[in-house]
């Protein structure tokens, strides 16, 4: 008698990160567990050798903080930073790979100003090579930490509700959150230089009003800003801040939006993960196992791969056009 319905059947993966060498994939789930997959063995397997079920299971699992969901993962230099609730933990990749002595090397507690009920989830983390700073979106604020000293350099406060997503573009930092506002920060002045409010644009509104005004993901390049969430996924001119393209995809909320090379990657509460051109032509639709896609991680070296994770115990491994493997947490 085995209870087949286990917790992992309903698991949700919120974030992913590749190891510095690119051979491993770390995923964080809602039970506070980071699972490490040996990705290269699955992707680079010879045609002849059959991939066993065991190779698709996690190689190692770290229980960071039981039942506190892991909202973000980031590989910064040789460390894996784990954004849990209230704390950022750092693990050394070398130890994770060897599965020996896997304990947090250091951690940063996010300051908790008001009361115990404040949500100090670390929803997004970015690392800037140029300044060696870590940008962490915690609740309404963006904390800037120096990676070497782990001292808070600055706190950016302007949003009225918690943040979902960050994007660095040169000297600018773009942030989007639950309040529906996309802020563009000037990192030299640490001030908001510009903002867009997609929910005010009627063309972006949905037929279901209950989806709300939140911005689930922001992205961009030198010329454009990409954002979406409760409002539809849309592309904006960087300079003029005017709406350029609205993407006609079927979804009930955007959680992943990114400009990758000359394409736009988007996913969320939808059956598909989309790749589109700037003029909103759909290049590919990958059916996802997860009901909602929360994370899309990709790399070009040492091998080209795109992994899609979300509200499922399974993780889709794609080659940008179609799904060819499926990692499993159970």
């Amino acid at each position: 008698m085995v209870n087949k319905l286990n917790k992992n059947f309903y698991n949700t993966v919120l974030c992913q990160a590749f190891s510095p060498c690119g051979n491993y994939l770390a995923v964080g789930d809602i039970y506070g567990v980071v699972s490490i997959f040996h990705l290269s063995r699955v992707v680079q397997a010879d045609n002849e050798s059959i991939i066993t079920k065991e190779q698709l299971l996690p190689k190692y699992q770290i229980e960071v903080k039981k039942d506190y969901q892991i909202n973000s993962l980031l590989t910064a230099k040789s460390h894996l930073l784990i954004g849990s609730v209230g704390t950022i933990y750092a693990y050394v990749w070398k130890n994770i790979r060897s599965s020996k002595n896997v304990t947090a090397a250091w951690s940063i507690d996010i300051p908790n100003k008001k009361d115990t009920f404040e949500r100090t989830e670390v929803n997004c983390m970015l690392h800037s090579e140029k300044t060696d700073f870590i940008y962490a979106a915690c609740d309404k604020n963006i904390y800037i930490y120096d990676l070497e000293s782990r001292i808070a350099v600055k706190v950016l406060e302007n949003h009225t509700d918690y943040l979902h997503s960050l994007y660095i573009n040169g000297n600018d930092l773009i942030s989007g959150g639950e309040d529906g506002i996309v802020n563009i920060w000037d990192l030299r002045l640490h001030k908001v230089s510009n903002k867009i409010e997609p929910y005010k644009d009627e063309k972006l509104a949905r037929t279901e009003p209950h989806l709300g005004k939140w911005i689930g993901a922001v992205g961009g390049n030198e010329d454009y800003i990409l954002c979406g969430g409760g409002p539809r996924l849309s592309l904006w001119h960087y300079r003029f801040l005017s709406n350029f393209t609205i993407f006609p995809i079927e979804d009930t909320g955007i959680h992943v939006a990114e400009i990758y090379q000359d394409r736009i990657l988007a996913g969320g509460r939808s059956k598909f993960f989309y790749q589109m051109s700037f003029s909103a032509e759909v290049i590919s639709e990958i059916p996802t196992t997860a009901v909602t896609t929360y994370s899309a991680a990709h790399q070009d070296e040492p091998f080209k791969v795109l992994t899609l994770a979300g509200s499922s115990g399974k993780i889709d491994v794609c080659n940008f056009m179609y799904k060819n493997q499926q990692l499993s947490l159970y």
């Binding site: 919120l14 809602i30 969901q69 949500r119 929803n123 639950e178 909320g253 929360y294």
Partner: peptide, 8 residues
């Protein structure tokens, strides 16, 4: 909070 986290 009516929602929190990236998964709302």
């Amino acid at each position: 909070w009516s929602s929190c986290g990236r998964n709302r």
